[in-house]
């Protein structure tokens, strides 16, 4: 398959979001004709009764685009500490650089994140299923840190608001420095000048950018 243009990839992402996440029926209105024609020629989309549909091949390609886009956002926000506006501006350009296996490495380095910084799901890749890990991994869930390691909380991820609030209550918020003092039988962490114990379930919801301190 030839390399798609940035614009064509953005159309695929738009179609993915409308059909897979918002359950709407996208039309050709306001979409650039030229790129749409390319996508149609490649067999990625079909037009049916005025609405545009992704073909199975298109669905796969769109999923990959979305994955790269959201991984790029995570990379920018977690590793480069970008602001919200920078995310929007740079994220769209950055993603196109993540082709050819690079995305797997980025995903692994980021600890296989499940959500983008805005909380939308990141489609999983092969590396997530294999649970790859690398010594250079920058982001890890607290539950996978070694005892004695230090880091800064990058973000919290939980499907349960009540769990999120428990973590917020103890002050485990993005930007807070932390040191894991003990892993077993419970996770004992120093946040600022206080210590808290959490269980494995809560520890798995805190993503930490490691800064060192291993014993």
């Amino acid at each position: 398959m030839p390399q798609l243009s940035d614009k064509a990839e953005e159309i695929l992402e738009h179609l993915w979001i409308s059909t897979q996440e918002q359950d709407t029926r996208p039309t050709a209105d306001a979409l650039p004709e030229e790129e749409l024609a390319v996508l149609e020629r490649e067999g990625l989309v079909v037009t049916e009764a005025g609405t545009i549909q992704l073909t199975p091949g298109g669905l796969e390609e769109a999923r990959a685009c979305i994955r790269r886009h959201r991984l790029a956002e995570r990379l920018l926000s977690d590793v480069l500490d970008s602001s919200d506006e920078q995310l929007h501006a740079a994220g769209c350009k950055f993603e196109h650089g993540l082709h050819h296996g690079l995305q797997e490495q980025v995903c692994t380095m980021l600890g296989h994140p499940e959500r983008c910084p805005h909380g939308k799901p990141i489609p999983s890749g092969e590396c997530c299923r294999r649970k790859d890990s690398t010594p250079g991994q920058v982001l890890v869930p607290l539950s996978e840190m070694e005892s004695g390691q230090e880091g800064v909380i990058a973000y919290l991820h939980s499907d349960r608001t009540e769990d999120l609030r428990k973590l917020m209550a103890i002050g485990a918020l993005p930007g807070t420095r932390l040191r894991l003092r003990q892993r077993f039988p419970s996770y004992l962490l120093r946040l600022g000048n206080s210590e808290f114990a959490v269980d494995a379930e809560l520890a798995g919801q805190v993503y930490v950018r490691r800064t060192g301190g291993a014993e």
Partner: peptide, 9 residues
């Protein structure tokens, strides 16, 4: 219930 507790000095 997920467990969390402050461990004071």
């Amino acid at each position: 219930e997920p467990f969390y507790v402050e461990v004071p000095p």
